[in-house]
Amino acid sequence: MPLTQLDNLVRAGQLKAEPPAQSEIDGLVRSGHVRLLDAGNASLNIESRFDLAYNAAHALSLAALRWHGYRSENRYIVFQSLAHTLKLPPEQWRVLDRAHK
């Protein structure tokens, strides 16, 4: 489902348009859920749990972007796109954007 704001980023060369592939989206969602589950494992060091949760967030955010028919190699674009792909309020996607920094 194309989004005007993201189409503008494609024209600006910040985002690639690529038709959604269901198998890739399924893989990303599965990978995100697995990591998120492991991030809850209190026996791991907090640094590892952070990495797992962060990578889960990225996989799930990328799944949303791919579902709409876009791709980006830039993690911050993937997180900032959440404002459009999932209509996430700024205070939510900015937490993820911050974790990336």
Binding site: T4, Q5, L6, N8, L9, R11, A12, Q14, E73, N74, R75, Y76, I77, Q80, S81, A83, H84, P90, R94, D97, H100, K101
Partner: peptide, 17 residues
């Protein structure tokens, strides 16, 4: 990852026109 990306913009993606 940060270096690979252009200066991170903390605001919502700007509609480039």
């Amino acid at each position: 990852a940060k270096n690979a990306a252009p200066a991170p913009a903390p605001r919502p993606l700007r509609v480039v026109s």
